[in-house]
Design a protein around this nucleic acid. Sequence first.
DNA 1: CATGAATGAGTCTTCATTCAT
DNA 2: CATGAATGAAGACTCATTCAT
Lengths: 236, 236, 236, 236
Amino acid sequence: MKAVRSSSHSGDRSGSRPAARRPKAPSASRRGKPENSSAAATSKSERSRDLILHSAAQLFRRQGFSATTLRQIAAKTKIKAGSIYYHFDSKEQILDEVLDRGLRHVFETVKNSVERAGKVSHRRKIGLAIEAHLVALLETSDFTSANIRIYGQLPEQLKKPHRPLRRAYAEYWDQLFIDARRAGEIRADMEVVPLRMFVIGALNWTIEWFRLENRDAVLELARRTETLIFEGVNKP
Amino acid sequence: MKAVRSSSHSGDRSGSRPAARRPKAPSASRRGKPENSSAAATSKSERSRDLILHSAAQLFRRQGFSATTLRQIAAKTKIKAGSIYYHFDSKEQILDEVLDRGLRHVFETVKNSVERAGKVSHRRKIGLAIEAHLVALLETSDFTSANIRIYGQLPEQLKKPHRPLRRAYAEYWDQLFIDARRAGEIRADMEVVPLRMFVIGALNWTIEWFRLENRDAVLELARRTETLIFEGVNKP
Amino acid sequence: MKAVRSSSHSGDRSGSRPAARRPKAPSASRRGKPENSSAAATSKSERSRDLILHSAAQLFRRQGFSATTLRQIAAKTKIKAGSIYYHFDSKEQILDEVLDRGLRHVFETVKNSVERAGKVSHRRKIGLAIEAHLVALLETSDFTSANIRIYGQLPEQLKKPHRPLRRAYAEYWDQLFIDARRAGEIRADMEVVPLRMFVIGALNWTIEWFRLENRDAVLELARRTETLIFEGVNKP
Amino acid sequence: MKAVRSSSHSGDRSGSRPAARRPKAPSASRRGKPENSSAAATSKSERSRDLILHSAAQLFRRQGFSATTLRQIAAKTKIKAGSIYYHFDSKEQILDEVLDRGLRHVFETVKNSVERAGKVSHRRKIGLAIEAHLVALLETSDFTSANIRIYGQLPEQLKKPHRPLRRAYAEYWDQLFIDARRAGEIRADMEVVPLRMFVIGALNWTIEWFRLENRDAVLELARRTETLIFEGVNKP
DNA sequence: CATGAATGAGTCTTCATTCAT
DNA sequence: CATGAATGAAGACTCATTCAT
């Protein structure tokens, strides 16, 4: 009940190329695994690939896609720029994989968190989703934060392959809200899509300002956010 | 009680340069004027400058700063890339001015809206601020939306000159919340900074998804957002 | 009765590109003019374009397409490599134009030479064609020699746009032979296609060894070749 | 009376290098053997070497030297690019050997064919030479066709080591013509060098268009060519 | 004011080559 | 013998910038 199906596009665009070398596609052993799995990346190649992706994610997150150069990625990975092409076909392919991992990571984190909770109130579920989303975004994954931060500014053609998964994630949240509303835990007159936008927006914007200081900071932020969303700022 | 002081930095960095032909600095007549003033842009030069800035703002907003080329800006302005240098010293200078105008625009819009209201409840004031912020962001100013969208990914050195004004704007909101809390319209245990982040985050994130369709769409969105913030999603 | 229709493809492949600048397409004033027209190339841009093409043709001819770098072309033209892109979209576009000019040049030279002769024997016509082809190839046009020399090694996709014109040229020769055979000046059992290949082959191969020394060398070579083709090496 | 002395240069340029593992020079057992001998290629190493050379020859022939990458050669040979360096010091060394084999192959083929004929007319000898040259070029050897096709575009320094053998081959043809002329089978006023160029040119150019379809096609072509050369196109 | 033409630094990418395993 | 992984030099191409006209 865990792995989010990869948007299965990743790397497809390179289909026409001669595809000389080997790696270039996410190794079977990694596909679908949680991105920050501490389970040792096996081959040397896989380790390098991973390091490159991590470097890229951090840089994309900070500077955006187009402001990030392959030389920067290489430098951070302590290899030379040309070497990147042993592992990837193009800068775009790196982007694709960063985006994909990032979204799959939040999605899985949120899903697992909610499902693990079992029978709890809808508010609790939404609270857990908020917390999981924030944890993924702010604590555990550069991929997720990179995705959230840069996606909006990418050219259409780069966004396209990631739409299905994005939509799926949005629908997952919508369902949480729909269920809660049906159960009467959310006002009946509340429309789901703007609500989801509002919530996700408030969560996502945290990348712009939140600086992780201690383990509990994110949890604290999550709690606060949940309260705000459910109760607003009004006097009770 | 209108004009927000420009962050006074704009163009300063070019101080050492030989000071080419003429303009290069916002013309006296424009300084401090509301950005969308339809009041006669006077000289031809000023009109071109303005058109360039508008083109730049739109492109920055859509693609980010580094993905936007001067030639794109020129093309959208229907001039040639070289001509931009009659009006600006560098791409950075354009950025500076776009950012500055953008922030001043929201700031003024919000301030004016609140002040014009006169004696009203704090909730009403905050509601007006929300509305004004959204209007500036989604309806009236490409500068504002450009600013909001790209600021976070800019290198330190480009952000720096804009910090004072950003801080001022943040403090303005903080004050709104502090006043409301003091007046008991907001729960006493609510900390102001995270609250502001939450609210501004929810508002700013709308650029990522909101598509302006009709005049009232933004107002409707603003109302909805105000309700959410004050009352939350709970059953009343 | 002169200009050979350009294969009209030239530059078409760049159709999808944003096409920012201007020149990039052969200027109207040059299209269809004989390549070595001494009629002054007018604008500065046109002159540069032309110089680049000439440099490219010479280098392509000597080293082949892929062994020739833009830097070499630039150096020979005494400009910087980046400047080439003011005039051309890509190395391929340069190639296209070199090939096109080259073939149009021989074609026109041959056609004009034959037509100008008026009512003469078929053998004379073929003799003139041989001479004209050799002159174009060895004396007047780097474009023609470049074309002949590199065409065969180009990847399919680069050859494609030039096929129609090549075919037309081949058919022109075929017609010369067909007419001569019908008139009884060529043995009736002689098949035209292999004959054309034989003749054109013998002519084209001269690039591999012939070094132009004096004005008459080519004419002398042409005469010799004509004799060989018509009479063979046999004792008369 | 068969083997054409290799131009003995092959690999010499690598003289200064540290002399890696082992082979790198054509194994003793192969030196001087006819290139397509099916007589057991012995060691595994030797077989690989050979496969690499064949792949290279085909690619050089089709695309030229500089457009052919080591990875393409490796792919065609079904090994990895790095492995090539066990057998060769550099791409240039491969080229050298391809060129050398190619020329030795035609040379031997022609020589053998002529010598085997014994006492025959000079025209017959030349006819056999034509046939043998075409067979080598179009049917039996990628090395020969690669040589003929790419030699002219190589940089001086790469051509140099192959000149002696080329000259020898040219002289062999010259001798055939001289003998024929002395015997009165060729017109006395016919100069030998341009004649050889004409003939070899017509033969060599066939690579540009001839597509081998059936066993006899080459022989048919050879016959036609011989007739043309001796009798020309005139009515008899 | 604006453009045409050019420049040079830097971008992504390719490729021959190396070398430890 | 062969490969996997990497390197560095170079290639095509882009782009902010300059400046004479």
